[in-house]
Write a protein that binds this DNA or RNA. Sequence first.
DNA 1: AAGCTTTTTCTCGACAGTCGAGAAATTAGA
DNA 2: TCTAATTTCTCGACTGTCGAGAAAAAGCTT
Lengths: 408, 408
Amino acid sequence: MLAKSSTELVRQQNSALVLSALRRYGRMAHTEISDATGLASATISAITAELERARIIEKSEQQAATGRGRPRVLFSQRRGCGYLITVIISSDSIQYSLVDYAGTLLDRFTEPRGEGSTATFIASISAALERAVSRSRIDPGSVLLVSVSSKGLAHPSEPVLIWSPVFGSQPVDFTKALHEGWSARVILNNETLLVASALIEREARKPAGGEPVLAALSLGHSIGLGIGRRGSAGTPEILAPNFGHMLHIPNGGLCRCGAKGCVEAYAGFYAILRTAFEVPMDTIPAKFVPLAEIDKIATRARQGNRMAQLAFRQAGVALGNGLSRLLSLHGHMPVFITGPGTRHQDLLQSGIEEGLAQTQVVRLGGMPELTIVPDEPSLVFEGHLNLAFSIVDQDIILSRPHLQAAGE
Amino acid sequence: MLAKSSTELVRQQNSALVLSALRRYGRMAHTEISDATGLASATISAITAELERARIIEKSEQQAATGRGRPRVLFSQRRGCGYLITVIISSDSIQYSLVDYAGTLLDRFTEPRGEGSTATFIASISAALERAVSRSRIDPGSVLLVSVSSKGLAHPSEPVLIWSPVFGSQPVDFTKALHEGWSARVILNNETLLVASALIEREARKPAGGEPVLAALSLGHSIGLGIGRRGSAGTPEILAPNFGHMLHIPNGGLCRCGAKGCVEAYAGFYAILRTAFEVPMDTIPAKFVPLAEIDKIATRARQGNRMAQLAFRQAGVALGNGLSRLLSLHGHMPVFITGPGTRHQDLLQSGIEEGLAQTQVVRLGGMPELTIVPDEPSLVFEGHLNLAFSIVDQDIILSRPHLQAAGE
DNA sequence: AAGCTTTTTCTCGACAGTCGAGAAATTAGA
DNA sequence: TCTAATTTCTCGACTGTCGAGAAAAAGCTT
């Protein structure tokens, strides 16, 4: 059934629009907001007045002197309105970042990721979150959202890790990472989903409009994939399919997940290692392969070593076949490749292209555009901010059913 | 960027909501519409009055005597408001149906599908459309939409067939099927997409809410797949990925599409025939296999013939592997199997399950629910009506920017 | 047959929101 | 000091939804 609409919803939608414009362009004047959103000047007055009363945005101090005329008043998010903590979990460490409502980074620290059960893992995160707020003397109650990312499979709605490289199918529930006094919501997303989110936003900022749909492929110890799409309603739609553990070859090489023949079991770092050293394909793969090890194999491959070359070629074909299946099931789209594996793109490229070439979608639609974007960490952080702030802004607007005209 | 909203859009949205309720439940009273939509009674008065003035809906003659109280006035679509023609293209024939705005079937006829170029094909459709309106003495200008379905790959926005079993990658443009005097829009959708649309609507009508996401798999000479999803906004989102020509086995059996190793090259009727008769896998497959031929092979398989059994098993595994990839890339969802191939589900079942079982998604989420829905033609027609009327209703509302209070 | 009850439809005024036009504010330059 | 330019603010018109209650129209009761 469709949803009903009302005049109040109109205001909500348009308030969200104003906040999102402020996110995208940062610090805007009345008229700029009007131009960017398409709303009438009078409407901007009403909305900004309301948001200002609610102490969500504020008139910024420094106003650019823009020649003659009445000086423009710039609006921006009120920093103290709330805070956001991003938690980026990687295989060997965890990075914490504290960000204020205006999007500026206040604090950042990285901790090694300890061994142990999921309970001790959650406890260490919990402690780090406490540390983050106390170091910056912030009231835990003013943390609006904790945004967590990890490799692996996240529950579609709850912040629960359903499968991860480290804990396997043992679920990890991040709601438990918050002590009392924390009213924040917790969200969990796959790391490559955030990359896709960042890329789709970058594309959206391009003047020409940019690609409205794309895939992000992350190459590393594990293989991640995110799909981003700019929906008709304007809200980007982002998902992280289980690409790395999609079936590549029936009854193929043993994968870390326990299944056989996953893409990752051919294209992940451990798979490259396994093939290069001619270890049997049913061997339980290494928990963690140092990047230097892969670099060594790559060097050998570039020097002409056959098994090393085969290892990368096999990885490339697995990725190419997988991408061809992606295009078959999600339609044609450009692919952005990121992650540490991109350093060896020269060794993977031909395999990827070969793996893609055979299928009907590629024969009809042509080879998809492949773009290398090496700096994955910035993409991940950018994705965190995009997604987190869109949720925070939405929450703030919804939680304030009537920002009444409460006089001074 | 998000979209801006306005009070006028609110009315549009709510008018659409009223029309869609009328579609779903047919012939409703004022209070019923109010209950179904959640809109206030006064709003229903305003909207129905407007739609009635615009001659889109009308108060129906027969009003059910419902005991005491003021008798209810039932609203329904005004039949003469416009017409819809559905064109269902199958491998050997084309079925035309003429439907009025209230959804009642006025005329239906089927024509054999001739040989020849795309031009003569379009010409024959064009002639049949003329015949449909003239037979029922309808002004071609009052045909609002021609909804065409076919197997194969449709262009995402234009009514152009990009690839089809019969014409291959020779594009077929259905806009050319309309003579002058026709102002109708033409839409083209993959046949199994319509099946998915019908199923998602059936699920939506279930009181408990039903599955919000599902896949429809059509087994026949070719393999079709549609995915239906009830989006958060209420509008169902339906897509038809290129499942049949997704890569199953690299460098595998030759497919009708010219590529090698497609799912269809293992699970389509011609593939079953090819394997059962031990024809080499690189043989150009038969253009058309009579259903009776497949039934014969099935009988032999049930009698114990090894090659016949293998043929069905191989088809099952191809489908199972393909579905496992579908679940990997689109998330877990129930699968509804339809089409003529469902008669031999007993021979396919174990292969499908085997093909599904290996992957991580299935190991984590369990075997997806497989439901057999034999009657494909009704599903296709139902899907046509759902999709076509939602477009027609939308068009009608948008084309009437101000249904002004024009007095009598 | 008149009056009562019940149920539905219709109408009115209050309220929320957007928009265009023009007034008010404020600065740079003549 | 005055004027032009530019931005912000304010007002009234318009569109929309909603709740309450009036009006309508039937069956039931006496």
